[in-house]
Design a protein around this nucleic acid. Structure first.
Lengths: 137, 137
DNA sequence: CTCACTGCAAACATTTTGCACCGTT
DNA sequence: AACGGTGCAAAATGTTTGCAGTGAG
């Protein structure tokens, strides 16, 4: 299903470079603006397409963070995020605990923490079953 | 900013009732379908508007879960969620730890857990400052 | 009479898709 | 020539808004 990358086009390369350059977690259109400074006639669709492909390859991560726009991250290490309710900004957080005081938070810990969300991701009973049946056939 | 509720209209009431009735965490249009069985000519806009108002009042919760559609929950107790990667279904989870084994998970624990996301929500340094300045003026 | 609320349609925001063309192999 | 990739425009998706009308207080 997932297409193989055959070519590292200039567009793809610049998108990846720009995403790696920043520590913010840009949305597709923010990244589009960044990339446009280097490739003025690139189209937003290309940015979306490449973000999809790059995250499909595991070269970047699509953030599963709340908010109406998807955000992307070139830091594929396992880490968590802290999001500002007001402005939507997203910062990194290295953390193994639900207690924010245990977190290694770089310079960002002037955040005033209001809440946290812990969301597990998995396969529900029904989908596990379907998958099992598929495998055994 | 937040409007006061003056009337508990039939629409509002039925929306709230239907949301309370289910343990799934319906999206606006799922809820629209549920409500439509009782008020056939209700409009989707009304559902959206009321969900916004009800969550503004704290009568329901807007889930800050990943995914392209917003989901709503009439269970306003503090609890977490588990989401199926395949079908998008969202179940409740009572949990104080990042370790899923510590979770009180009702009957849902046939989930196969793949990952978790911990997202803190707060006020970033800049927004804290802005807010402080506003208060002191 | 007022005003919160409604349904409807249009607007809006974000993301995806169809298509013709282009460039590498 | 094949085919992955591109730009552009259109479509699709999810949500919000403008507006005229309605009904409870």
């Amino acid at each position: 299903m997932q297409k193989q990358i055959r070519r590292l086009t200039r567009q793809r390369q610049v998108i990846l470079e720009e995403l790696k350059k920043t520590r913010s977690h840009p949305t597709a259109d923010e990244l589009y603006e960044m990339v446009r400074r280097r490739i003025p006639n690139i189209s937003l669709a290309t940015v979306y397409r490449n973000l999809e492909i790059l995250s499909g390859c595991g070269l970047i991560k699509k953030l599963e963070t709340a908010g109406s726009q998807k955000r992307f991250d070139a830091n594929i290490e396992n880490h968590q995020h802290i999001r500002c309710v007001k402005c939507g900004r997203v910062d990194d957080l290295y953390c193994d605990s639900v207690n924010p005081l245990d977190c290694v938070a770089g310079e960002n810990f002037d955040y005033e923490i209001i809440d946290y969300r812990l969301e597990f991701i998995g396969l529900c009973p029904e989908c596990r079953l379907k998958q099992k049946n598929k495998k055994s056939s």
